[in-house]
Simulated scan of single mutants.
Amino acid sequence: MTASSLPETDPVAARRPQYQADIAAGLDRFFEPRRDDCPWCGGTRLTTRLRTVDLLQHKPGRFELSQCADCRHIFQNPRLSLAGLEFYYRDCYDGLGEKQMADMFEGNSANLKDRASLLTKHHAAKRWLDVGTGHGHFCRAAAEALPDTEFHGLDMSAGVELAAEHGWITRGFRGNFPEMTAELAGNYDVLSMFHYLEHTLDPKAELAAAAEVLAPGGYLVIELPDPECKWGRVLGKYWMPWLQPQHLNLMPIANLRAAAEEVGFTVVDEQRGEPHSAMDMAAAAMLWSNRFIGGDDVPWQPKPPSGLRKLLRKASMVLTVPMMVLAFIGDQLIAPWGRKHGWSNAYRVLLTRN
């Protein structure tokens, strides 16, 4: 039975047997063998950058990020297997996690609109394909500012179909982008990958696919978490952009530029400070408090929390409100200075196909 066909009278209870069976079968199958070399450059001088747990959903498992001393690429090691990707993505962006993610995007509409700004300084888009569109929130926001642009979306999840049903995209494609290049080639003058490449198994293959789809003169705009951001050192595992276990690869901007140029792109423009979302301390406070408060009813726990545990969770959440408010204020105060001094948590690059 798939998650979409489960009875929704008690969606947590309905999902619990499958999750408990998955966990009982062992977590080792959710990981590939550990790598001794960098997937980006092949270098063998690897160090451990981070060890953590799932701080967002609190599913079981431990995760590690390795960093290459030669090219500075950061990658999950050992990486999730296909079974692991299915397990840890389940009910994160869809299903039980759909409303939480939708609320997050709805509250970030200004940033979503701003993502198009790097392109619009150079080109008036006619037909735009957003790769990794999720539920189409970017396309919905950008269409308000670009009414003459036709937006299409592509994603692996059912969210792209919902986006089409809502009318947020004119057309939706569901599948693996590199496997769909023949179907998509020649149809777009703009492609975007916003917070997408870090989720992919092979970012270089995704860039090569974009080069196949775009005709010469077409544009590709990319936004990624910036692993060189100083917040990553200060906040450690509570820095939200590490986002384990979903983020498989984190590329310094120089690596992205070089890889794109290798497959036929030229860098037109880039932004290091403008994409920054002033949320690092607030997000860290949220992750920390949720980890230690616990008590939420989730199907990967063997049984629901007791009434007392639920009450304690509510009381604890109230007590953390002042901390969250202070963290939010701190983010807003630091952001203008931080954008100029290496504290931006994201970057954007605009490329054109040669």
Results as ranks from 00 to 15, higher is better:
280 D>F: 09
128 W>P: 06
212 E>D: 15
159 G>D: 07
22 D>G: 01
65 L>M: 14
79 R>F: 00
256 L>C: 06
19 Y>S: 09
314 K>M: 11
332 Q>C: 12
105 F>R: 13
344 S>M: 01
134 G>P: 05
55 L>N: 01
256 L>R: 04
169 I>T: 09
314 K>Y: 10
152 H>V: 13
237 K>L: 01
219 Y>D: 01
250 L>V: 01
324 M>R: 15
203 P>F: 03
240 M>P: 00
50 L>W: 01
274 E>C: 04
270 E>V: 13
270 E>Y: 11
54 D>R: 08
37 D>L: 14
207 L>D: 06
262 E>N: 09
251 M>W: 11
352 T>Q: 09
49 R>I: 01
249 N>R: 12
40 W>T: 10
294 G>A: 08
140 R>C: 12
115 R>I: 06
327 A>R: 06
175 G>A: 08
146 L>T: 11
17 P>K: 10
210 A>C: 15
239 W>D: 01
138 F>S: 08
54 D>E: 08
222 I>C: 07
353 R>M: 11
144 E>V: 13
105 F>M: 15
208 A>C: 06
99 K>F: 03
20 Q>N: 10
144 E>H: 11
134 G>K: 11
72 R>S: 13
135 H>S: 15
354 N>V: 12
302 P>K: 06
273 G>I: 12
329 I>A: 15
76 Q>A: 15
230 K>C: 01
308 L>F: 04
53 V>K: 03
348 R>S: 07
6 L>Y: 02
309 R>Q: 15
